[in-house]
Write a protein that binds this DNA or RNA. Structure first.
Lengths: 158, 158
DNA sequence: TCGAATTACTTCGCGTACGAAGTATTCGCA
DNA sequence: TGCGAATACTTCGTACGCGAAGTAATTCGA
């Protein structure tokens, strides 16, 4: 795909801005979490459990886009702090459900911010047209990334 | 700011998609880096040094949006691998410049992918109108985030 | 039905990633 | 001019974050 220099520069700018928005949102979420004695991922986990009830470790992993091995560590530390507990499923004894303790649930209620809060805040100031356009374009990009990922996976299996 | 449920759902979807695009791009960059024996951040550092020449550690930190202490570690490991070397500035002896070794420079030439490659690839398939719209909206968001960050910093100093 | 393949989770080793505290150097101004 | 503040970097402790290898439980097919 041939690119004029101008287009290349615009592309760089978009990547740059996207990275800025993501990392800055993450940084501020972390900061907010610190104020209640949590880390960023821990705040996310508590919010998820409070919203959806008990979740298996795998489900949690998918939700926060991390590997099981990562989430095992996060839950280890949260269990140590008395925020959650592990409960083996009776129907499938391989599965571990994660449940909020009363202490964890109370904390969830006290937390006002959501993950990526800043980003949400500024998003909500966009006009309806801008919001729709943004969603439309991002969806397009996501669909194409999914397509490419699938292609590469198929190529890798050969 | 009052939000109807519909708007809230759309907002969630945008956040979700943005996180997807970012994490997936990062994951694939990491994968590509592995194939030449590097990590994701190391690939980024090599590309930056190859493009801009020697950079101070702080400049490098800003470029990759990380703290100095993080970059110190990354450079430690790259130095150990013989990819870069540290050189103290003569004009300001606090400053450390990072320079590619011949081995590092050769590696830079061999690497075809750029950081966030997938995202760049799909971005370049957008129409000119979509690209312009996306840039326009993201800029708007970035400007507002910057504003909020500045406000909070000012509030924090009180 | 039973053994191989799959699934859910954990463990381990390594590389980020950050903030706080420390060291060396330079700057700024009284 | 000299000394306190600021700057550049490093060190340390802790928490992700991943992939590979390991364990226990379940599924599936001959």
């Amino acid at each position: 795909m041939l690119q004029e220099p101008e287009a290349k520069a615009e592309l760089d700018a978009i990547v740059e801005t996207l990275v800025y928005l993501y990392t800055e949102s993450r940084r501020l979420t972390k900061q907010a979490a610190r104020e209640v004695g949590l880390t960023g991922p821990q705040l996310t986990v508590i919010k998820l459990l409070d919203t959806f009830g008990d979740l298996s470790l795998s489900t949690l992993s998918e939700r926060i886009r991390a590997q099981n091995s990562t989430v095992t560590g996060i839950i280890d530390r949260m269990e140590r702090e008395g925020l959650v507990l592990r409960e083996r499923s009776t129907s499938d004894r391989r599965v571990v459900f994660i449940r909020l303790t009363p202490k964890g649930r109370q904390l969830a209620k006290d937390i006002v911010v959501e993950p990526m809060e800043i980003f949400r805040t500024v998003l909500s100031t966009l006009s309806r047209d801008d919001t729709r356009d943004l969603m439309r374009i991002l969806s397009k990009l996501q669909k194409r990334v999914r397509g490419l990922v699938k292609e590469r996976e198929a190529a890798g299996e050969r």
